[in-house]
Design a protein around this nucleic acid. Structure first.
Length: 609
RNA sequence: GCGCCCGUAGCUCAACCGGAUAGAGCAUCCGCCUUCUAAGCGGACGGUUGCAGGUUCGAGUCCUGCCGGGCGCGCCA
């Protein structure tokens, strides 16, 4: 069952072919002039250029062939050669009935499913989530759901940042401030193992909360910048952790566990859930063999004491400014730094090993890295190295970058105090606004305290997510607190509100024993609603191809808006029985598609609000 | 220095391989609740798509140059 756009596209293509003009140009799109038509084809214009004929002549001939099509109520030529198509009410009714009967609300699945990993979120040990994590989580989660819904087998991986230099910093900071822990760690280090008898003593580690770690880390990172001795100590601790020295490892396990537990909870509250919480630490054991393999493949080169893989092709170079200000012609992209001059693995090394790990655990066709746009060069380098080493096939690794959330000054967002805004604080602020609003509606009187809180959370999350998802992911945008926690207009709560209205209507209809029946399209608001519903599959496919959830967000808003106009223009329960039945079916179809689409955006809907 | 991204209404953002009159929301103003949830609906106002050229029947979209902003450029991740 295809949508009207596709079906009409095929009809126009057939007419093109019959006229001897290239049928591949016969694309049908929703009309730019809804006052004139439902759909249009601009193909005659492009075809005219290609075959050297007058576009109006082609359009006229094609239109003549289309006029017999019972699905079309009118076919007209306008301007230089636009073919304007109006769909017959009967065809719209048929389509509406098909969408209403379809559990997928008119969305297709793909003929050839792929195996896809979506790497998103970017959580790190000891770091509470801040607004900067919002985009990575929201966009990645939505892409994961869209891909899965279209039929792919999809794994969402948090790719937990739990290894590396920050761990050394954190160990140093904790040992300096917690003498009891320092003592335990040293003791375990000295003995070289953790035994059953140590279980009780390990309880002291449990006193370390995420708050403590979050407070300790920033000053430690700051200190490491200026304090060479401290930095070297942290490096040494990092190396000792990586060699799994018992005390440090036990301490690190606490870091990892306490952070992961809190983050899983926070992500879940945002409607973000990962299939894998693989950490950088999980690929640590793969790095040694991988380096040996790269060496065996003669890809590793010694350079300034480090070991690198050159990824530039055929001597690609680019002028490059050095630290001292001089400009030299250097290979581009930069090489992948695999082993530092101190012998440790780097960021890119871990990423490369992660590709191997994923290949082993899940034989992917595609890995989507939903990560900040600023990492674009880094991924280009890692991907090239992976292709060179044969760890993935060309094109299987894709970086889907997104822009930053900026403040009104155009720089990455900071609170007035100059700090980062914690994600939990943002959610709670928005939730509080939702509670106030719900009290104004005096909804608190009708629902339980638990449901009240659940509704407030859903409203808050919908507001935040939709505010982000309606922007194209690739561009940076200005984060405005008022806009993100706004409930009117083109917002998440508006969408929820339309869903709630349908649900309310259907509850009432059930009470009055009003039953849905065949759709008979008549009113213009009904036509518009069916046309909006019909566009679901195209929006999904486009969002999928472009990896751009904002396309689906836009579609969802249009359906909600068409529903709201329909609601205002067309009485439902008061209508005569056949019309009432038709409109109830439209309402049911709208509800299903809205809830599906919102779910794909990662937005859950309440029953009332 | 080189590279990538961006510049659209007062503000925040859209715009389907280049196509008709560049669309939404917010803000401002005017209407609409004795009828299914007014977090709504209708209407008005608002544009030289940063500037200058070029390609094209046709450019916000493609090309060149300039101006303005953001980001990146091996031993952090």
């Amino acid at each position: 069952m295809s949508d009207l756009k596709t079906a009409l596209g095929e009809a126009v293509a057939a007419a093109f072919a019959a006229e001897g003009v290239p049928a591949d140009l016969a694309r049908v799109t929703p009309s730019d002039r809804p006052d004139l038509a439902d759909f249009q084809s601009n193909g005659a214009l492009a075809a005219a250029k290609r075959v050297g004929k007058n576009p109006r002549e082609i359009a006229t001939a094609v239109a003549e062939r289309l006029k017999g099509d019972p699905r079309l109520s009118s076919v007209e030529i306008a301007g230089p050669g636009f073919i304007n198509l109006k769909v017959a009410d009967a065809a719209l009714s048929d389509r509406a009935n098909a969408v209403a009967a379809d559990p997928r609300a008119g969305a297709e699945t793909m003929a050839v499913p792929r195996r896809v990993i979506v790497d998103y979120g970017g959580p790190n040990v000891a770091k509470e989530m801040h607004v900067g994590h919002l985009r990575a989580s929201i966009i990645g989660e939505s892409l994961k759901r869209i891909y899965r819904f279209r039929g792919d087998e999809v794994i969402g991986d948090a790719h937990f940042g739990d290894w590396g230099f920050q761990m050394g910093l954190l160990i140093a900071a904790v040992c300096d401030t917690h003498p009891a822990i320092a003592e335990l760690v040293e003791d375990l280090n000295a003995r070289g193992e953790v035994t059953e008898a140590d279980k009780g003593r390990l309880a002291v580690l449990a006193t370390l909360g995420l708050d403590d770690l979050g407070a300790l880390y920033p000053p430690a990172a700051e200190r490491a910048k200026g304090d060479v001795e401290f930095r070297n100590r942290a490096r040494r601790l990092t190396a000792e952790l990586q060699s799994k020295k018992a005390g440090y490892y036990a301490l690190w396990e606490r870091f990892r566990d306490v952070t992961r537990e809190a983050l899983i909870r926070d992500f879940h509250a945002l409607g973000v859930d990962f299939d894998w919480w693989k950490g950088e630490s999980d690929v640590e054991d793969l790095i040694g063999p991988m380096v040996a393999d790269l060496d065996a493949k003669a890809l590793l080169v010694d350079d300034q004491g480090a070991r690198i893989v050159r990824v530039d092709r055929n001597g690609e170079t680019r002028p490059k400014k050095l630290a001292d200000g001089t400009v030299v012609e250097a290979p581009w992209p930069d090489p992948l730094l695999v082993v530092s001059s101190e012998g440790s693995a780097m960021y890119g090394t871990t990423d490369l090993a992660t590709i191997l790990d994923r290949r082993r655990a899940f034989d992917f066709d595609l890995v989507i890295y939903c990560v900040d746009q600023r990492q674009a060069d880094h991924f280009e380098i890692v991907f090239r190295a992976a292709y060179l080493a044969g760890y993935a096939d060309e094109g299987q690794l894709i970086h889907v970058g997104f822009g930053t959330m900026n403040g009104t000054d155009g720089k990455p967002f900071k609170t007035r105090a100059g700090g980062v805004l914690k994600l939990n604080d943002l959610i709670e602020m928005t939730r509080e606004k939702a509670r106030e609003r719900l009290h104004e509606q005096s909804l608190g009187e009708d629902v339980s305290a638990d449901e009240f809180e659940e509704i407030a959370s859903k409203v808050a999350v919908a507001a935040l997510k939709f505010a982000d998802l309606q922007n194209f992911r690739g561009t940076s945008y200005i984060f405005d607190l008022d806009r993100f926690s706004s409930f009117e207009g083109k917002t998440g709560p508006y969408l929820l509100y339309q869903v709630v209205r349908v649900k309310s209507l259907l509850r009432r209809a059930a009470g009055e024993a009003a039953r849905p029946g065949p759709v008979i399209v008549g009113e213009s608001a009904e036509r518009d609603l069916v046309l909006a519903l019909d566009a679901f599959d195209a929006a999904l496919a486009d969002a999928y191809d472009k990896k751009a959830p904002n396309i689906l967000a836009e579609h969802t808003y249009r359906v909600a808006q068409a529903w709201s106009k329909f609601w205002a223009a067309c009485p439902i329960l008061q209508a005569e029985p056949a019309v009432c039945a038709s409109r109830l079916t439209l309402a049911t179809a709208t509800l299903r598609q809205l809830e599906l689409a919102l779910d794909l955006l990662g937005i859950a809907t309440p029953d009332r609000m």
